Simulated scan of single mutants.
Amino acid sequence: MAGLRAQRIAVDEGVELHAWVGGQGPALLLVHGHPQTSAIWHRVVPTLAQHFTLVVADLRGYGDSSKPRGAPDHANYSKRVLARDLLRLMQQLGHARFSVLAHDRGARVAHRLAMDHAGAVERLVLLDIAPTLSMYEQTSEDFARAYWHWFFLIQAAPLPERLIEADPGAYVRDVMGGRSAGLAPFDARALAEYARCLALPGAAHGLCEDYRASAGIDLAHEREDRAEGRRLAMPLLVLWGEQGVVHRCFQPLQEWQRLADDVRGWPLPCGHYIAEEAPRALLDAALPFLQGEGA
């Protein structure tokens, strides 16, 4: 994260978020996915920092952010709470309104952030997801086999935590290397960072709690949105990997059109880990959108 400075900011009682901050221009929040950290953005940060003031955050439970013990109903790892964390982070850094670029789990948090705090989110880019409720409702054998971790991580503690903690580095390599491109696209330093962070006390538990919340309280929140007819009003760009599971098992653009008024999107020539597999293609797609071109 050359050119950015590390900060640690309190966002809730006993919870601090770690973030890299720097650049110039309007505010842009970057949010990572599983089993990664803010380091996923290392190939796009140099270009984005020329156009935006970046806040590159580690979610609660991940990276160098706090990892509180999960509540019995997993509510303190709900996407609603994680979104509130990010909102408070941005507000404390002086950004009342900002755009968001988010991948995987971070994109699910960004979806909730935009739904619950629409006035704060100017533009939204979501990478390689369909809405969580849609994905659970449309789960097929193909999807379940490919996204086995969705169903492993939601098992009751401490089973998945114990297995991950036995060899965090192997978990990172096996999960990430099991996708379409294998481990070839990843910088060895980034892989080492993911492994380091997953080995931190409480990290495996935080990761599992994120998924447990998605299989329970998060689905309730999305069903409430659907029942109340709530939609995303800000411009939304959805991008996904044409070699990935989301492309094979779902129709992401159609799914997001059901939830958003102003949405566009298309697949990129890569697998799931877009920012690391196809950084140039991501920048070519996201940068004009984030700068408001063609609006």
Rank of each mutant, 00 (worst) to 15 (best):
A2V: 12
L4N: 04
R8Q: 12
E13K: 11
E13Y: 06
V15I: 02
H18A: 01
A19E: 01
G23R: 01
Q24T: 14
L28R: 11
L28I: 13
V31H: 15
H32A: 12
A39M: 04
I40V: 13
W41L: 03
H42G: 03
P46M: 13
P46S: 15
P46R: 14
H51C: 05
L54Y: 00
A57I: 03
D58V: 04
G63L: 02
G63R: 06
S66F: 02
P68M: 02
R69P: 00
A71W: 02
D73I: 00
D73T: 00
H74T: 02
A75Y: 01
S78I: 01
V81C: 10
D85T: 09
L86V: 01
L87A: 13
R88V: 02
L89E: 05
M90N: 12
M90Y: 13
M90R: 10
L93I: 13
H95W: 06
A96R: 15
A96G: 10
F98V: 03
F98E: 12
S99W: 01
G106Y: 05
V109I: 08
A110G: 08
H111I: 06
L113I: 06
M115E: 14
H117C: 09
A118R: 11
V121W: 03
L124K: 03
L124D: 10
L124M: 09
I129F: 07
A130L: 02
A130Q: 06
A130P: 09
P131D: 09
T132E: 12
L133K: 12
Y136V: 09
E137T: 10
E141P: 08
E141N: 13
F143Y: 08
A144N: 10
A146E: 15
Y147G: 05
W148R: 08
H149Y: 09
H149A: 09
F151S: 03
L153M: 07
I154V: 14
E161M: 06
L163D: 08
I164T: 08
A170K: 14
Y171P: 01
R173F: 01
D174C: 02
V175I: 08
M176A: 03
G182R: 15
G182A: 10
L183N: 12
A184Y: 08
A188T: 08
R189T: 04
L191Q: 09
L191K: 06
Y194K: 06
R196E: 02
H205W: 08
G206W: 05
G206R: 02
C208M: 04
C208P: 04
Y211W: 03
A215C: 05
G216W: 06
D218V: 00
H221E: 04
R223C: 00
E224Y: 15
D225Q: 07
E228I: 08
R231H: 13
A233H: 15
L236G: 05
W240S: 11
E242V: 07
Q243G: 13
F250C: 14
Q251L: 04
R258G: 05
R258S: 15
L259F: 09
A260G: 08
V263D: 01
R264F: 01
G265N: 07
G265K: 09
W266Y: 11
P269M: 05
G271Q: 07
Y273M: 03
A275D: 05
A275G: 11
E276P: 00
E277A: 05
A278T: 10
A285E: 07
F289H: 12
Q291T: 09
Q291K: 06
E293D: 13
E293K: 10
